[in-house]
Design a protein around this nucleic acid. Structure first.
Lengths: 338, 338
DNA sequence: GACGATTGATATAACGTTATATCAAGATAA
DNA sequence: TTATCTTGATATAACGTTATATCAATCGTC
């Protein structure tokens, strides 16, 4: 078989010089129609594809953006990725995904390989407890970086977050207006900053109504954890009338656990989720939740990284995405009188 | 700020030549302990990281494997990715994910960019109706490729699939043994080869029991489609007592639709899914389904691509992953007498 | 003490591009 | 007609590595 074609063999086949072939392929420089056609025809025939490594090394342009996220299967992230890809592909970028699995070791390995591979930019959800050394590594290589969801403590990168505090404040407020007083914040890891913001909103709403009941329950954010932990929670705090959850998955797990014991979400315990994943609307009963706008978040991320690449020295930007309380069937006035 | 360090500046800082610095960084060649330490210390100080593009271009080694899949949010795929990553990271590879969204246009763009980026190999789920030109593009660049789940019609790549026919045969057989006769194959796209294999198993079991009822119902494989289409199905085939679904998501949608009309999955209609996603076990009632072994599939994919890279000329290999029928609460004997 | 073998380093070229400078030939202008 | 400009192409060097060949100095051996 013939070897992989390169500019040299292409130029030879077309009877022109290497720089000419290069210019034709990129549509730059002054080229007569005649030679243009000659080269294009030869390129077609040889199935010529330029070597991005060489091109990037010489020109300094990097047409690939990486996303390093904490969980690739998370449906919220999938929507964000769609938003990012649609926008960046229109600008000629390739978007590739790395999965840290929310583990700092994996994350470090991935970032090292990432730096070696010289991509144009990084869209990142830092893993929990990301150490300063990891941030420094990124900083010293001055890679255009935008974080989302979780903001890095140690370094200023562009960041796009959610209005977490506002969201849980509104949700808690709604439960209070329905008559609830014994409300628990359910789920999430103790170290999480995002969760801290959400608890902030929860607490300030509780404080407003004069309640000093600020129960916060730690638990992983997945469905099976929701099942198990709700039982524990209700054992320890049997008078709870409502829970605000750190995510839809744990909320759906809580619904499941409740139903198993013959109780009804909404009627016996009000439950509010976070994220509005597809399953929230399709569950029985349909889950009340806080909707974020992941696709729009993705679009904004794409725009932000392009801005950062265009001007690496501009001041750091931070934005926040609006959220929306979606009321479905798992929220109602408490059944017993308070 | 100082410019990005390279081998030249590193060598200068350490007082050695460029090749020496290179050898130290890679641990090759004959280097005295003294100079080794000098170079490593300088590398530390400058935060030197080699440029993978240049290294790869010169040495021909490519330490990155790409996965191009049809749906990044699919929990089955997420498990496969874990299996692939764990294995390949141990061998010093970076694994990055591209999402074709099962759309041939996206897929083509992604593959073009992929080829330009010169990665070491491709682990691929071809999008539905992938055209021959796309395959040819891959072939002419002789990129080590392994497909999974869906096998390409036009070209021989290494492939790892599921025992689809066997799986649905066993599932159908089980329903027949329970007493079912009016069984429908529910969901999937008409063009899908994988689905065709599954229908094969379904039909041959049906034939064995003397039934010529081979109803196959086309529908997208997601949850909301399951909800809508089940109503249509039951309207047209009201005597159906069991459905074998093309995926868990559509099966869960079918369960939901059934419950909405006051009927019970298992009791009024037996339902079997495919994939055994996490939600299958946590649904109410818990879904009977066919379990594949996605993590092991991932491990096998990793091994296969490494073999292919090591010896590009070896004959094409095809393997199939065993499946397992998991009986939970959505399967039972039909309620009316046949 | 002459010879080959080993050690530890370096010089040079190459990977496949693109940026920059250059150049011949024809076109235009004075 | 000579000088200047434009057109369409090319020569050369550079990006940051690594492979190969080379070389001086030290070592061991008889």
């Amino acid at each position: 078989m013939t070897n992989k074609p390169n500019l040299k063999s292409l130029a030879q086949a077309a009877g022109v010089s290497v720089p000419t072939a290069s210019q034709v392929m990129r549509g730059t420089g002054r080229i007569s129609e005649e030679t243009r056609k000659k080269v294009l025809k030869a390129a077609e025939r040889l199935h010529y594809v330029p070597d991005g490594r060489a091109a990037s090394m010489r020109s300094g342009e990097k047409r690939e953006i990486g996303m390093l996220i904490h969980s690739i299967s998370n449906p919220f992230n999938a929507e964000v990725i769609s938003g990012v890809s649609d926008h960046l592909e229109r600008h000629g970028y390739l978007v590739s995904i790395l999965d840290s699995r929310d583990d700092v070791q994996h994350q470090k390995k991935n970032l090292e390989a990432f730096i070696r591979s010289s991509r144009g930019g990084l869209i990142w959800v830092p893993a929990h407890d990301t150490p300063k050394t990891t941030i420094d590594m990124l900083r010293t290589h001055s890679i255009p970086t935008v974080t989302f969801l979780r903001q890095s403590k140690f370094a200023q990168f562009d960041h796009i977050g959610l209005k977490n505090t506002e969201a849980t404040y509104t949700a808690t407020r709604h439960l209070i207006d329905l008559g609830h007083r014994r409300i628990v914040y359910f789920g999430g890891e103790p170290h999480s900053d995002v969760r801290q913001e959400r608890i902030e909103g929860f607490k300030s709403a509780m404080k407003e109504c004069g309640s000093d009941q600020h129960v916060v329950w730690d638990a992983p954010d997945d469905k099976s954890s929701g099942v198990n932990e709700l039982h524990q929670l209700l054992k320890q705090h049997p008078h709870t009338t409502a829970v605000i959850c750190n995510g839809d998955m744990i909320a759906l797990g809580a619904c499941f656990a409740l139903q198993k014991t013959g109780k009804a979400p909404g009627k016996d315990l009000s439950i509010i989720g976070f994220d509005d994943v597809q399953d929230a609307a399709l569950a029985t009963p349909a889950l009340s939740t806080i909707s974020t706008h992941p696709y729009e978040l993705g679009t904004l991320l794409a725009k932000t990284i392009l801005d950062r690449i265009a001007d690496p020295l501009q001041p750091v930007k931070t934005s926040q995405i609006e959220t929306q309380l979606i009321l479905r069937d798992t929220t109602a006035a408490p059944s017993g009188s308070e």
